[in-house]
């Protein structure tokens, strides 16, 4: 198949000025069951400023070359968690990955995140991921019979205890980088454990026991093989593997 090429869109008269644009090849895994049962690779050549995001490159393709290219995105700055994808073999957010940081000399490969059913191009079925999240009871549970009239007190130290895991944006980069999850989709996966951790270690919460029991399950925290893929993949810099280890330790000692 011929490679579609996007012409430069520089303003006229700026030809002599040093152009920031370089030519980059995006090699994208395409799949559309309305067209074919087989997934294929397709190359696109675009002109892009290396300081731009991979998401900007995908938009250039979608907006100017092939409107059928399909991916999720929203905020475009790493907060909403929509655009996790496998870029050069590594899970990243397309909106948080700059072209210059991933060697634009070679084709940039872009695939959907692994372990979830691909629905079209880079769009996967997120339902199993969110189901695992819902299964760990990701909400504050308290034994209070009477709600306090003011806020519950919490010391800055107690608040700090679970700060890292509150950063999670549910992008699924960690869970879909995990070899255990690839081999067995029943595994809760790192993101669900991170969100359980966020409540297990919250001094205001009274349901740690229940959550630990859920994660003690055969598909729970013991499946983790400590490969650190999740920590590497997290676009929010959460120490995911450490959080999982803390949950394991809590299960052994049952002391929080």
């Amino acid at each position: 198949m011929a490679t579609p090429v996007l012409e430069k869109t520089e303003p006229a008269g700026s030809a002599s000025a040093a152009s920031p644009y370089i030519t980059v090849t995006f090699r994208i895994r395409r799949f559309n069951p309305e067209v074919s049962a087989e997934a294929t690779w397709q190359d696109f050549q675009i002109e892009i400023d290396p300081k731009e995001r991979v998401l900007d490159g995908l938009h250039k393709i979608k907006w100017d070359l092939d409107g059928s290219l399909t991916f999720r995105r929203s905020c475009a700055h790493g907060i909403c968690g929509s655009d996790a994808m496998r870029i050069n073999g590594k899970n990243r957010l397309a909106c948080k990955t700059l072209i210059k940081d991933i060697n634009p000399e070679k084709p940039i490969t872009i695939e959907p995140i692994k372990g979830l059913t691909v629905l079209k191009d880079l769009v996967v079925d997120m339902e199993p991921f969110f189901q695992a999240y819902r299964d760990v009871m990701p909400f504050l549970i308290t034994k209070d019979t009477n709600e306090p009239t003011r806020e519950r007190l919490q010391s800055p130290e107690d608040r700090e205890r679970f700060d890292d895991t509150t950063k999670c944006i549910l992008c699924a980069a960690c869970t879909t980088s995990c070899p255990v999850f690839w081999n067995d989709g029943q595994y809760f996966g790192p993101a669900a454990i991170v969100n359980a951790h966020r409540f297990i270690f919250d001094s205001r919460d009274d349901a740690a026991e229940q959550r630990l029991e859920i994660l003690n399950d055969k598909d729970g925290v013991w499946r983790c093989r400590t490969t650190f893929n999740c920590t590497d993949a997290c676009p929010r810099g959460i120490e995911v593997t450490k959080a999982i280890a803390e949950v394991k330790r809590a299960l052994i000692t049952r002391r929080l």
Partner: peptide, 20 residues
């Protein structure tokens, strides 16, 4: 509204006394 969110579990930053 703020107290509702705290009761729902929102992790506000805290004062040394443990207040929001």
């Amino acid at each position: 509204s703020v107290l509702d969110l705290e009761k729902m579990g929102l992790p506000f930053n805290r004062t040394p006394d443990g207040l929001i």
